[in-house]
């Protein structure tokens, strides 16, 4: 079981995590955050597919992603 948390307020919407995710569990939100960016969010119900490879974490320039693993 893997849990991933994306800090909505840190994200600047560069989409790096979206393109590097091998399981395609991240997408861009339609709602702005307080800084005026469309942040990355997890696709509902797809978090269970996460394999905790950490590619999104490695590529995130804002260090906005944290991953927990059982």
């Amino acid at each position: 079981m893997v849990k991933i948390r994306i800090d909505r307020e840190r994200c600047k919407g560069c989409e790096f995590c979206v393109i590097v995710c091998p399981k395609k569990i991240i997408t861009m939100d339609k709602q702005l955050n307080s800084a005026g960016y469309y942040p990355a969010i997890k696709i509902k119900d797809k978090e269970k597919d996460c394999i905790a490879c950490g590619k999104c974490y490695q590529m995130c320039p804002e260090v906005a992603i944290e991953i927990w693993k059982e």
Binding site: M1, K3, C14, P61, V63, I67, K69
Partner: peptide
């Protein structure tokens, strides 16, 4: 649950002032 990828201790929680994708 164990944290496998987390914010490093040597980095403050300040937001970066860089442009998106920098």
């Amino acid at each position: 649950m164990k944290k496998v990828f987390s914010y490093p201790e040597s980095l403050k929680k300040t937001k970066f002032s860089y442009c998106p994708g920098c």
